[in-house]
Each structure stands twice: as C-alpha cells, then as structure tokens.
Design a binder for these strands. Structure first.
Lengths: 326, 326
DNA sequence: AGGGTCGCAGAAATCGATTTCACAATCAAG
DNA sequence: CTTGATTGTGAAATCGATTTCTGCGACCCT
C-alpha cells in the first residue's frame, strides 16, 4: 500500500497537493498531471482509516438488523446496499438477534468507527438511541418505532392487516384467526389491530379467542397454528402477521392435511422461497427493498447536512393474490 | 466521545498509561484504579479509527458474498457472525452480485480499511486475489475455488451429487435429469459430475441429453425445469444442484401438476422456507453454518500469526429425506 | 509605482490512539 | 555496596491522511 508521501515524493510535490488532487481542490494542471501519474504507477489508494480519523467521518453506513436469515431483512439490506453504493457509501451489516445488548454494542461500534450514519431496525421499542443521538450522527429507524425523535421509515401496518382480513371474509371464510408477533414490536401489534377492527365489524365472534401471540419466527408460527387447531371452536382461516410465522403456519396446516384453499391463509409479507401454487393464499406484498432505499435516501440527506425536523415515511403494502414467483 | 487525553487529564496520568490500562500492560494498581474511574465517569471508549491507524489492523473481518438474498449465504454469514463475535471481531458484509468488478472494489476497501482478514466466496474462478495476498492480509475462500493458494473451506460436492442421484434411482426413478449451475463455478460442476457418474453406471441413457445449465437462481431453475419438461423424452426425476434453482424447479413442477413423489426431486442444499411435506423430496443438507464458522476459525488462526502452508477443509453434505422444518 | 486581491503550493498542525525510548526507582545477585 | 536487571511511567514519535496557516508570485486598480 503506497502512501500519500510516496506519491508526493515521486511527483515532486507536497503531500498536501496530492490530497488536493484527490479531493478536487484547485491544483494547477501541470502538478495535477504529475500527481496522477505518480499515483497510478504506485497503485495508490488513500488509506481510509487515516482519512476517517482526520475527517471524523467515514464513507460507511451501519445497517443493524435483528435477523440476517429473515428474507424480509435481507431484501431490505439489498435495497440499502444498492442505494448506498450508488451514493458512494459501503455498508456494514450487523445482526442483533433481537438482543438489546448486542444492539447497544453495535451502536457503540458505529460511533467509535466514525461511521457516517446508522440505519436501525430496533430490537424493541425500548432501544436506547440517546448516545448516538447525542453524538450528532444521523440515525434512521426502519420498520419499528422507538421513543426517540428520529427519521423513520415504516410500512402501513394496520391497513395491511385490515385488507388481508377483509379479503378472507370476502372469500367466504367466517372465523378468521390471527397469529400476531410480540407485543414489544409495534409492527406486530398494528397489523393485529387491523385484523381486529375487521373481525369486530364482520366476524360476529370474540376476536380475543382467535388471537395468538408468537415470536415472529418459523417455530412461533408453528406453535401458534398448532394451538389454533387445538381450540374447541377452530377457525377456518388465519391471518399471519409476518413471513416466517406464515411459513410455520403453512407447514403445520400442511401436516394436518389442511392446505389452502381448504383453510384460508392470509400472510403479511412475501414468501419468496415457497413453492405454493399461485393464487391459493392471500398475501400482502411489502415494499421491503424500498424500505431500504428510502432509509438510505433519508440518511444521506442528513449526512449532507439536512437539519429539518425528523420525518416519518409510510410505505403502503399491496394486497396480492400471491407472489410465490420471483 | 471522550478521548484518551481527557481520561489521562482527569486521572492525573499520561495518555500512555491510560492506553496500557486498556491493553492489559503492567500498570500499578493505584494508577490503574484512577484510570478506570476516570474512564467510567467520562464514558470513555477508545476510538477504533485511531487505534487501527496506529496498529495497522482492526478488529473487523470482511465477508464478501455473491448474494445476500440467498439463504445459503445468509446461513453461512450467520455462522461467520457468531464465531467472529465470540473471537472479538465484527463483520462487514459485502454483496458482489457475482460481479468481479464489485468484488475487486470490496477487496480494495478491505485493504484500505486495514481489516484484519477477508472471507471470500469468489464470484468466479477468475477472481483476482493477487493484491490482497501481496499485502499479507489473510484470506480464506469458501465454497468456490480460485487459482490462488489460500486457505479454503468447501463442501464435498461430488459425493453430494452422487448420493442424491443414487437415492432417486433407489426410489425407483429411471430417467434422472440434472439442473447444474454455471460452468465458472466449480461447486456447480462438481455436483453435476457426481450425478453424471451415477447416471453412467445405472441410467442406461445418454446423460448429456438430460443435463441443463442454469444461472443458480430461482429463475434459472424455472427455465431449466421448463426445458426439461418440453423434451421429447422427458425425465421422471431431477437432481437440482442448489437451493434456489430447486425452488424454481419445484414451482414449475407444481404448476404442471407434477408434485413429488409423482416426479422425483433431489435438491443439494436446504430449503428453509418451503412448506413441503417432509419426506417427499430427497435433499442433501449442507453444513452452511459450519462453512462460516470453520472459515472464521482458520482466518483467526492466520491473524494470530499462523504461517503454515494453505489448507483446504472439506465438509461433508448429509443426505436427508427432507429438511423443510427449521 | 504601491497596495490589495487572488490562486496555488508547501510547512506544519491535527485527528486519537499505540508504541518506542528514556529515565527513575526498586530489587536481586555477586 | 556496587552492578545489572526489572518495573513503572511520561515524553515524544508514529500511523496516513486532511486542513489550516503562511508565503510567494501574478494580476488588477487607482
């Protein structure tokens, strides 16, 4: 790795001039040419560590997500990556496992590595952003809210829950259950609320009896579906509030010989790797990639100096018959 | 963000002493206590940028993969994350999209960020590791080989292809086709070779007629399966050489009303998010997470100074009837 | 012709840690 | 009671870039 001093020596100029050439500050054509030639013969690339120490900021964004194995988050990460790269940033991906301790560690690392900004899917509504906010580094939260006043990108969860529930009633199902996520995650409770409103308007049964809380993962969906099937008065359809629980619920239904449309299934979130026939389940397509690109857009604008009050962007889900094909 | 100088001033010692306390070098108990107290009242955490500039190395590993949306790689990333964190490293995840240009950029970034080492799933067998090797930074390649002599972790691909093919013949199928990946990826060709050997021994037909090359993604699997079904003499079973193409093939079969076991399906690689009934397809479970943990283990040993000749570790796949449950 | 402005370029300071070096104090061995 | 080794500590150098400060020369304007 060549340094700026070696380039300067070879070009016969000062290191300051080399720096200026690489940062687009005014340098005479003559010296600029000398520097460029020297840099290319030495295969010089500026040391990012030194640069970011001096500038107190780097061209790296932190993306902190709860579960790297969830296609929802990887699709979002994909959006973040693409847009960030286009804006000249690279992305550090951190996995919290929904553990507030790990989350705190990664936020700390983002600070001490002088990262330009953070895109965070909070592990819970209790996540502590105070130190990173105090540092002045921009933060955008995605998909789940916190108590802090920061830029935020989120899906219209309640309408998503309502529309898929409506679709099931419209299809003729009469007892539509719900598998919801943990109560500390607003995304989950909002979607369940959408379901509850529709049930109260059209169901004619006590919604609480057909609501199960699960852990947002495949095994959670399996357990909740199994419980529902063991109820005295079983449902004839179910709304599942995220993709992984949807997979779990479908597995259990399958094992009981209850494949859709014999049993109504509505899922909020895409199921990119299932092999279901199209059209058999109701599904709300979520704009996951847009979630990522929007977050980067907002973050980059903050990094560029935008000081307006924090904004919240809501992206709509889209009711689709099914989207098993990629 | 407090600096080491502020801590030193508050504790009444020199910055060098503060550094020594945090790096476990001998310091008198008295001063050590003063430093610790000062550090905790100031909430001091050392600036990683400054540290890595001085030490010429950081506690960050680069993980460069072709596709962050592929569950195979995310499971591997998960293994890398867990093990790296246990060893005190954080992980930067980079997505190449199988693009050698992006790959080269990320390798360059890894160098200029002084990262401790690189775990790379090469975009192709042409990947150029010369500059990173010249720099002396350790590299471990995973899953796919290159022309360079570096540590390597890989799956026993040919036996995987052979065993799943054998399983299909044993189950009574007679014309077992194969959907293979691109020829620039050894993983793909090795698995196909395993299939070919078994077909030549037991098939009694020309293997070339039932071999399709596809792009390793869902759409590739779909296209190849569609082609196979359009052949004059159609197969009655298929071996698909990776997970995503397996999903595509199953989708197309499903659309043609040919669900297993009416049509034999063998897949090399897990299908974590499918809702298939267990036992209907033959499947080779791949130790993806182990791939990641093993790579980290090797890399960390290099970082610690291990100078032995490059090693290759082979991990076996495991024939399972199915593994749709997570 | 003298004073002011402007543009370019080098010297030196800076970012915040680690590490070398030098020195003093303590201790063990001869 | 020296001599030599060991230990703890601070001053200063260092990593490699950016940025401020400063000076030089060219140019313009009364």
């Amino acid at each position: 790795m060549a340094t700026i001093y070696q380039v300067a020596a070879l070009a016969g100029v000062s290191p300051a001039t080399v720096s200026r050439v690489f940062n687009g500050r005014p340098v005479s054509d003559e010296k600029s040419k000398l520097v460029r030639e020297a840099a290319s013969t030495l295969a010089f690339t500026p040391n990012r560590t030194a640069r970011s120490l001096r500038k107190q900021s780097s061209e790296v964004l932190a993306l902190i997500i709860p579960d790297i194995e969830n296609p929802f988050f990887t699709a979002m990460a994909r959006g973040v990556e693409d847009r960030a790269q286009a804006a000249g940033f690279s992305v550090v991906l951190c996995n919290t496992d929904d553990d507030p301790g790990k989350e705190a560690t990664y936020l700390q690392i983002a600070l001490s590595e002088n990262m330009a900004g953070v895109i965070l899917v909070p592990a819970s509504d209790q996540s502590d952003l105070s130190s990173i906010i105090a540092s002045g580094r921009p933060v955008v939260t995605v998909d789940r809210t916190t108590a802090f006043d920061v830029d935020h990108v989120m899906i219209e969860n309640e309408p998503a829950g309502a529309s898929v529930t409506t679709a099931l009633f419209d299809a003729g199902f009469e007892r539509v259950a719900c598998i919801a996520g943990p109560e500390t995650v607003v995304t989950a409770t909002d979607r369940a609320r959408g379901w509850r409103h529709v049930v109260e308007a059209r169901g004619g049964y006590d919604s609480e009896l057909l609501l199960k809380i699960a852990n947002y993962r495949v095994d959670g969906g399996r357990a909740a579906m199994a419980e529902l099937l063991a109820e005295a008065e079983t449902p004839d359809a179910v709304v599942v509030t995220n993709n992984l629980m949807g997979v779990g619920a479908l597995q259990v239904l399958n094992e009981h010989g209850l494949t859709p449309p014999a049993f109504g299934v509505g899922v909020i979130g895409d199921l990119p790797f299932t092999t279901l026939s199209p059209g058999l389940i109701s599904l709300v397509h979520l704009p996951t990639r847009d979630l990522g690109t929007t977050a980067v857009k907002m973050l980059v604008s903050r990094i560029a100096g935008n000081r307006e009050p924090a904004r919240t962007v809501l992206l709509p889900g889209e009711l689709a018959v099914a989207s098993v094909h990629t």
